[in-house]
């Protein structure tokens, strides 16, 4: 509810800006007489999926010997199939455009089905090793299956999971918790993997947008892609070989700056912010080495961060002028 909006609506009707028919439902919401619990229901569904996946994981771990691997594999496959069957029955016809949501729970049951299928595949691979020396490819398989399911059922949630699973196949962590451990362990190969994955995601997003094939997935691919590119460059500055960190830092400064400029020109504000932050971190890594962390370092960082503030304020007024 919003008392100010509730107070303004009768005046808007009186001035002829809103008709009485338009105003009635708006007024009910503003007065708190009608409220939507859609977000809460989605949160419950999401939490439900998380708990079920956690419970299933524990069940398999604790009862592995008692139940037997075949039973576990079949049970997981049946559970995944049940979820995906439910989704398939309720989903609308396929479209390359953004599809209307046919059911509130569809996204979450699809997510549960994909997670259970992924767990089943991983379990089968771990126990029966059907892929042999090609074992890491089960992650790629899961990523492709998740990607296909995301496109078919128009699920951003599952699409993001497909991208992060693909990154995991290349040894790159997307989540922050796992990302910390990955950074600490960072090697040049993983840094390059992160950059390559990121560029691939950015390219995928670009292609989807320009081919008008699920163009609304583009922001997910592009943001995740640039996050991985800059994360990879950052990993190079802190976890790479000592003789190479300056190169990575310069690259981070340059790529971040270019991304910030591009984001500003295209009015992609999150990419602009990501680019500016990346460029400053690259600069800070270089500057910390040159000026140290004492008085001169503090002074340097004060003036440079103040300069960035001036730049951002200028960007703000430029954007307002062209709005």
């Amino acid at each position: 509810m919003d008392p100010d909006v509730a107070a303004a609506i009768p005046d808007l009707v009186h001035r002829g800006v809103l008709t009485s028919e338009q105003a009635a439902p708006l007024l009910r919401v503003a007065r708190g007489e009608r409220a939507s619990v859609r977000a809460e229901l989605r949160a419950l569904l999401y939490l439900g999926v998380l708990l079920i996946v956690g419970g299933v994981s524990l069940l398999v771990k604790e009862n592995l010997e008692r139940i037997g691997p075949v039973t576990i594999a079949v049970a997981l496959a049946l559970a995944a199939a049940a979820c995906l069957f439910w989704v398939a029955r309720r989903a609308g016809a396929f479209t390359w455009e953004e599809a209307p949501e046919p059911h509130l729970a569809l996204d979450y049951l699809l997510l549960l089905g994909v997670l259970l299928a992924g767990a089943d595949l991983a379990y089968v691979e771990a126990k029966f090793t059907p892929l042999g020396e090609l074992w890491p490819y089960h992650l790629l398989l899961v990523a492709l299956l998740a990607g296909a399911a995301a496109v078919r059922y128009d699920s951003r949630l599952v699409f993001s999971l497909a991208l992060s699973t693909f990154a995991a196949w290349r040894g790159v962590a997307v989540s922050f918790a796992a990302g910390g451990a990955w950074l600490a362990r960072g090697t040049t190969a993983l840094t390059w993997n992160a950059i390559a994955c990121g560029l691939l995601f950015v390219g995928l997003g670009y292609a989807m947008k320009h081919a008008r094939r699920k163009a609304h997935f583009e922001p997910i691919a592009v943001h995740l892609g640039w996050l991985l590119v800059l994360g990879g460059l950052f990993a190079g500055t802190v976890g790479g070989p000592p003789e190479q960190w300056r190169v990575w830092a310069v690259l981070l400064l340059g790529v971040g700056g270019a991304l910030g400029y591009w984001g500003f020109r295209r009015r992609r504000f999150w990419l602009f912010a990501l680019g500016v932050a990346g460029a400053y971190v690259g600069h800070a890594r270089l500057a910390a080495d040159w000026v140290g962390a004492q008085a001169l370092g503090c002074l340097w960082f004060f003036w440079t961060s103040a300069a960035v503030i001036v730049l951002l304020v200028w960007a703000h007024f430029q954007l307002r002028r062209h709005a």
């Binding site: 996946v53 994981s57 994909v114 997670l115 259970l116 299928a117 992924g118 767990a119 595949l121 991983a122 379990y123 691979e125 771990a126 126990k127 029966f128 090793t129 892929l131 074992w135 890491p136 089960h138 992650l139 398989l141 899961v142 990523a143 998740a146 999971l161 497909a162 992060s164 699973t165 995991a168």
Partner: peptide
Amino acid sequence: GGDFGGGGAGS
């Protein structure tokens, strides 16, 4: 075989 799950799940 591998030690890793897909789609967020671990083996």
